[in-house]
Amino acid sequence: MPTDKHTSKKSYAGSKVLQIDGDSLQQGVSVDCVIFGFHDGNMKVLLNKFSYYTQWMLPGGFVGKEESIDTAADRVLKNRTGLENVYLKQFHTFGDWKRTKLPENEEMLILRGFENPKDREKHWLMQRFVSIGYYALVEYSKVKIETNEDEEIAWFDLKDIPELYSDHNEILEKALYTLRIRLSISPIGYELLPEKFTMTEMRIIFETILQKKLDRRNFQRKMLAAGLVYKLDEVSKKFGVKDSALFSFDKEKYEKALTDGFLILE
């Protein structure tokens, strides 16, 4: 089930997909963004759904003729989260010739008044699209979601992802696989966690991405030994009645690990 569902009537540039002039676009190219957050002990993904269509989908958009794909992805991220200069990485190109489910796109057109078959066939949305996949790591509390009158946006727990539009489930799985590979050589967590966090929260992020349980004590020992985090003289009761120590990242060492590599989990 979705959490933190938004249906406000604020608008943003490019939100009404079916009203976009196809001549202004780089034909057949789109971007899809897997936006990860972490809240209440759960890894989450931001999804959106248009009122004239039944399926949820990853936030995405089309590329303008005078726009780079990176700029298009930045635009999508800002429109959906209100954030700029966050961790956003291109991870894969999705170009299977069957990935664009034309009946799904046709359903959208029919529901918006394109009943004439010839009009539907000529519409730019009915062509094949190659999508460039990006993943973003954002701090949940900083996200400021804006929607328009014909859509919903919601956070979903990773364990509760529904059947998505087109190949978006595959895109999400590929993003998770990419993060899993990244964890073998580079740290993660700084972009997802608040300034102060418990070791349990950090471990849950690692476990979710790796899809396996990690020994609590061993995990903490390795993190502290690597010097990526340090213990604060503060505690939290977020995960039960017992006080949990709070930690913070050593940003300088974290950024060095991003450059030099990270083998803490081997």
Rank of each mutant, 00 (worst) to 15 (best):
M1T: 08
P2F: 06
P2T: 01
K10Q: 12
G14K: 06
K16D: 05
V17Q: 06
V17P: 00
S24W: 08
Q26T: 13
Q27W: 03
D32Y: 11
V34H: 04
I35L: 05
F38K: 09
N42P: 00
K49E: 03
L58R: 01
G60S: 06
F62C: 11
G64V: 02
K65F: 02
T71L: 12
R75H: 09
N79H: 15
L83Q: 10
L88I: 06
K98H: 11
K98N: 13
P103A: 06
E106L: 09
L109P: 00
F114S: 03
E115G: 04
K118S: 12
L125N: 03
F129A: 02
Y134N: 01
Y135W: 04
L137R: 04
K144A: 12
E149S: 13
D150P: 00
D157N: 15
D157Q: 10
L158I: 15
K159Y: 09
I161R: 02
P162K: 05
Y165W: 14
I171L: 09
L176N: 04
F197C: 04
E201S: 14
E201Y: 05
E207L: 06
L210F: 06
K212I: 04
D215E: 14
R217F: 02
M223F: 10
L232M: 12
D233M: 02
E234D: 06
V235K: 09
S248N: 08
Y254R: 07
K256T: 14
T259D: 12
G261T: 11
G261A: 05
L265Y: 07
L265G: 07
